[in-house]
């Protein structure tokens, strides 16, 4: 956490997750004390293998946990200086934090335009049409697709989901695995646009990913989770050069090839638990 502390001095966090524990169905403990800070205007990534609790952390932040019978039993979450851990999902959106859920989750039986309009549901101003143009500026492909959103390709659906989030004019967007099911070329494109939106609009991004390679390239700071805990954190540079991260998440690492047996015991020894 010392690295996080130095980070704190340079930029004030827009989102602070403080030592939260999450329990599903009142018995299954998924998170065991997760803490993270997201500085305003930056891209932060949350990495980790399947089942580490990344998505659960996001849902705890966005309040969607309550729709899945989950509960934050300990710790607190602060967004823009306000406690949001007990808020329900629609109030979190109103406070300026928007989550793009895993698997895109667009409304398939509506057109892309209707999906975009729904993104602006919480807004009351009259600039919605201008913002639709802004979304088309980032994702020109969406403008051509006037049919039902269900017929869009996976990449276009992901773009629509991100565009829909932009329509809410949020201060921060949490993206849950935007690279899921996309071709490497599309992943690159989507991450490029995420980075661009962050730079143009100053929207803070929290990026949950398994694709560490791309995520770390887009992010300024990263957290690595395993089995419901944050096990490592650091700046982009620190993580990219960390031997363990190279070994487990980026591939490669040590130059000389190890025997399979040696690799296995090495992994077991080097687990952060």
């Amino acid at each position: 956490m010392s690295q996080a502390a130095t980070k704190l001095q340079t930029a004030s966090p827009i989102l602070t997750v403080n030592n939260i524990e999450v329990v599903y169905d009142e018995v299954i403990q998924v998170l065991r004390g997760v803490s993270l800070d997201v500085p305003e205007g930056e891209v932060v990534t949350l990495l980790g293998p399947n089942g580490a609790g990344k998505s659960t952390t996001l849902k705890a932040i966005s309040g969607l946990l309550k729709t899945e019978n989950g509960e934050v039993t300990k710790g607190d979450i602060t967004f823009l200086g306000e406690r949001i851990d007990s808020k329900n999902a629609e109030d979190v959106v109103r406070s300026g934090l928007f989550q793009v859920m895993e698997g895109r989750r667009i409304i398939e039986d509506m057109t892309s335009l209707e999906n975009l309009k729904l993104g602006a549901y919480t807004r009351k101003d009259s600039q919605i049409n201008q913002d639709i143009e802004m979304v088309y500026h980032y994702f020109p492909r969406l403008k051509e697709r006037t049919g039902l959103a269900g017929y869009l390709s996976g990449g276009e659906q992901q773009m629509l989901a991100i565009g829909r989030a932009l329509m809410a004019r949020p201060k921060m967007i949490c993206l849950d695995e935007p690279s899921m099911g996309l071709s490497p070329l599309l992943v690159k494109e989507v991450f490029g646009i995420i980075k661009k939106i962050n730079q143009d609009q100053g929207i803070t991004m929290l990026l949950v990913e398994q694709n560490a390679n791309y995520a770390l390239r887009a992010a300024n700071y990263g957290y690595i989770m395993e089995s419901g805990k944050v096990v490592l954190d650091g700046t982009q540079e620190q993580l990219l050069n960390n031997e363990d991260v190279k070994e487990f998440y980026l591939g490669g690492g040590n130059e000389e090839r190890k025997s399979f047996k040696g690799l296995k015991s090495y992994k077991r020894r080097k687990r952060w638990l």
Partner: peptide, 24 residues
């Protein structure tokens, strides 16, 4: 209408609707 779209979104998937800030 915005509310009509919100109702269709809720009919499609309540969790998505909530994630968009719609009060189910």
């Amino acid at each position: 209408s915005k509310y009509g779209l919100a109702m269709r979104a809720t009919a499609f998937d309540q969790q998505i609707a909530q994630s968009l800030g719609i009060s189910v």
